[in-house]
Design a protein around this nucleic acid. Structure first.
Length: 111
DNA sequence: AAGCTGACTATGG
DNA sequence: GCCATAGCCAGCT
């Protein structure tokens, strides 16, 4: 609202990610209708830390299933730790069987 | 105000 | 299959 609706939409989608599932920045951007707004999604995640409501940014990874944003957490180990806590197997900062855990908002939430 | 940066993705070599 | 380049938009310096 105060900020771009884009950010709010990103937070809303990320919060709707079910536990044990992950998605990619591009998927969210595509769901929001921003074709190449993947960077904005990542930027929104960075801004999400300023948000009062918690945003499960650890469930959002890049298209390769790599935990690129883990370094932005309070503790770089927190991201994979949370993912593991949700039953997602993470190895070498990368989600194993990424396709298995992949959650596409445009498919699950439907447009 | 202008330019750089950035948690990305797709394409080309 | 990996490295380099381009496109994208908004925030920050």
């Amino acid at each position: 609202m105060d900020k771009a609706n884009f950010f709010k939409d990103v937070y809303d989608v990320v919060r709707q990610i079910p536990a044990g599932r992950v998605t990619s920045y591009g998927a969210i951007a595509q769901y929001l209708g921003v074709k190449s707004g993947a960077r904005m999604v990542g930027w929104a995640m960075n801004a999400s830390f300023t948000e009062k409501e918690y945003v499960p940014a650890h469930r959002v990874v890049n298209r390769k299933g790599l935990l690129t944003g883990k370094h932005h957490f309070s503790n770089p180990n927190a991201m994979e730790d949370r993912l593991k806590a949700e039953g997602i197997e993470v190895e070498n900062d990368q989600i194993t069987q990424f396709e298995k855990y992949y959650w596409d908002p445009s498919k699950e939430l439907e447009i």
